[in-house]
């Protein structure tokens, strides 16, 4: 008989299962991207980034004599998101390097004092890809016609096209409807909670209105929906409390939208998320829940 500390029962929703459910929720949008942009322009990129990441994580874990956790799903989530945020037709070697950087460098070495990733690995890789390979990583192709960014295209597509995803953009970011389906699934399963996505979307709308733009257009273009439901909800790099999450989501959205609209840097979301990630440990230390029976907030003197 086992004599261990309480509790003696446990919910069946474990980490591995959570990770694979997140991947499943991303699949509809990813499959749409493959269909819309064509397998030739998408499958090599997706598989290269996944392959690079999984091999890199296994390699690093082996080198550091850590248990190899490749199959617990976490690196897969990272690189499916990375792959979906890459432009179709990107040189697969760049995608491979991006995947390897995401898990082999960012996830393994850029960590907080307690060993958790400090930065969202997919987004760091995305930012690095943009800065190192600016031209290929920001050239979006549809039917063989290249343009600089989706926001810079000629005649604006209709709202319906935007909603369905019939527009230029990264492989998995265009189809608002399928991303909402996936995000809704995660909410329904209780894997993510609504505070981060809602704060992010409100932030996008607020910034857009402030700059005198059409908020629907800004919500449906770029990676707003993908970021709101799948990227800033990365648990490791987002704050732990509800007020912390609301502030984080809103601030990230503001920065992201501002960058997208006012600069030539094309993936504002990735840069904004990485910037926000630096604030997460600080937010977690300052924004805590009020503890029952106390008036002040729980002090967290040092970490």
């Amino acid at each position: 008989m086992i004599v261990s500390a309480s509790p003696h029962v446990r919910r069946s929703l474990g980490k591995k299962r959570v990770m694979w459910e997140v991947i499943a929720s991303l699949l509809p949008a990813a499959i749409f991207g493959v269909w819309y942009f064509g397998p030739a322009a998408t499958l090599p990129q997706l598989s290269a980034s996944i392959g690079g990441a999984v091999i890199a994580q296994g390699f690093v874990e082996r080198l550091r004599h850590h248990p190899v956790t490749v199959m617990d799903g976490a690196p897969w989530v990272t690189v499916v998101i990375l792959g979906m945020s890459l432009p179709p037709g990107l040189n697969p070697l760049i995608a491979l390097a991006g995947g390897a950087i995401a898990t082999g460098v960012v996830k393994a070495f850029i960590t907080t004092s307690t060993g958790r990733s400090l930065l969202n690995p997919a987004m760091v890789a995305r930012v690095l890809i943009v800065s190192e390979f600016l031209v290929p990583a920001t050239t979006f192709t549809v039917d063989g016609v290249s343009t600089a960014t989706p926001l810079a295209s000629g005649s604006p597509p209709s709202y319906l096209d935007l909603f369905l995803g019939m527009r230029i953009g990264s492989i998995g970011e265009t189809t608002a409807v399928l991303l909402l389906v996936g995000g809704g699934y995660l909410l329904w399963r209780g894997i993510i909670r609504w505070h981060l996505p809602v704060a992010y979307l409100v932030g996008v709308v607020a910034t857009s209105l402030l700059l005198g733009r059409d908020p629907f257009f800004d919500l449906l273009t770029g990676a707003s929906i993908l970021t709101a439901f799948f990227i800033i909800t990365d648990p490791t790099t987002s704050p732990a409390t509800v007020p912390g999450r609301v502030g984080f989501g809103f601030a990230t959205a503001t920065i992201a939208t501002f960058i997208r609209i006012t600069t030539l840097f094309p993936t504002g979301e990735a840069l904004a998320v990485v910037m926000g990630n630096f604030a997460t440990p600080f937010i977690d230390r300052v924004v805590t829940n009020r503890v029952y029976g106390t008036r002040r907030r729980a002090g967290r003197a040092s970490a």
Binding site: R10, G14, T69, G115, P235, A240, Y292, A298
Partner: peptide, 26 residues
């Protein structure tokens, strides 16, 4: 099968523990 005790893996900071704590601890 009822107790479902399985090996520990690394914390991912999901903060579910924060969400469920009835007295607001972290």
């Amino acid at each position: 099968t009822e107790s479902r005790r399985v090996p520990e893996v690394a914390c991912i900071h999901c903060a579910w523990c924060v969400e469920v704590c009835p007295i607001g601890l972290m």
